[in-house]
């Protein structure tokens, strides 16, 4: 075994964690130099969440329940989905610039580094304003939690964290797929914008869909897993459907598939020639 191979073998978790920390620090430093942008972005994050909440509130002012779900249960799903979307916002935000760097040819620089392309590309940006959404989500979820009088135990809290991580994997996977379409087609921005709009419907119970669309929104565009299936585990603990129990496995599977799809695109990328 030569030295390079030995170095390669050592590249475990700690190697990537060290690199991630270094890239993160650089990113935050460069963000600090655009302070106005940071403040406005944070304000923007708060605004979209406030407006999102207002539309939710207006809807419930007119209709007391949706499909047998009352206001507080829906609020629970709403808060849950916001928290579950935070990892996507904070850690995977660079997917949004993938198509620009692919079309301009800049993407080639990621191909020449001796580390995982996906890891390197994604780690380049940490989106701080996503934390605003997290705060909003935690506030909504805690309010709904206490209104529904769900007991707080160490067990349920651990379960909650596990479920949130699971749920976040689904949306990350959807956006990985959407972003990677730019390796095959021009103007793929629309795909991402459309997919991102779907997330607003993740907060409604998937029981509103029936037939073919129930299957589509569970297994093809899996928004039902972002709040509904994991949320049921805590909301209705005595009647948990099989899909809720399987959601961690399905989440990992979806994420893995999206990663493979993304990498497939990245490896067949051959620059723009300039």
């Amino acid at each position: 075994m030569n030295e390079a191979a030995i170095a390669n073998a050592k590249r475990g978790f700690s190697f990537y964690a060290r690199i991630y920390r270094k890239i993160l620090v650089q990113d935050l430093k460069s963000k600090m130099s655009y302070r106005a942008d940071f403040i406005i972005s944070t304000f923007g994050m708060i605004m979209t969440n406030t407006v999102g909440f207002m539309s939710f509130y207006i809807l419930f002012k007119n209709f007391p329940s949706i499909n047998g779900w009352n206001y507080h249960e829906m609020l629970f799903l709403y808060g849950f989905s916001l928290i579950a979307l935070t990892p996507l916002q904070c850690l995977f935000d660079n997917n949004w610039s993938l198509r620009y760097s692919v079309e301009s040819g800049d993407f080639i620089k990621y191909c020449f580094r001796p580390i995982n392309i996906f890891f390197y590309f994604i780690s380049e940006v940490f989106d701080v304003k996503g934390l605003g959404q997290l705060v909003f989500g935690v506030a909504v979820l805690s309010y709904a939690w206490s209104s529904l009088a769900i007991p707080v135990t160490v067990g349920t809290l651990c379960l909650l964290v596990l479920l949130l991580i699971t749920a976040s994997l689904f949306m990350i996977a959807i956006m990985n797929f959407a972003a990677a379409t730019c390796f095959w087609m021009l103007r793929s921005g629309y795909v991402m914008i459309l997919m991102f709009r779907f997330k607003d419907y993740a907060r409604y119970p998937a029981s509103i869909f029936d037939g073919l669309f129930r299957i589509i929104f569970t297994f093809v565009i899996p928004i039902a897993f972002i709040a509904y299936y994991p949320g049921l585990v805590i909301l209705h603990p005595d009647n948990i459907p099989l899909l809720s129990k399987l959601s961690p496995v399905i989440g990992v599977l979806f994420f893995w598939l999206s990663y493979k799809f993304w990498m497939l695109g990245a490896t067949r990328y051959d620059g723009t020639g300039s």
Partner: peptide, 15 residues
């Protein structure tokens, strides 16, 4: 004035 893209855009769009 702001050199901000995302923030300004998202505020406008949601409102």
């Amino acid at each position: 004035y702001t050199e901000s893209t995302w923030g300004i855009n998202i505020v406008k769009e949601s409102i």
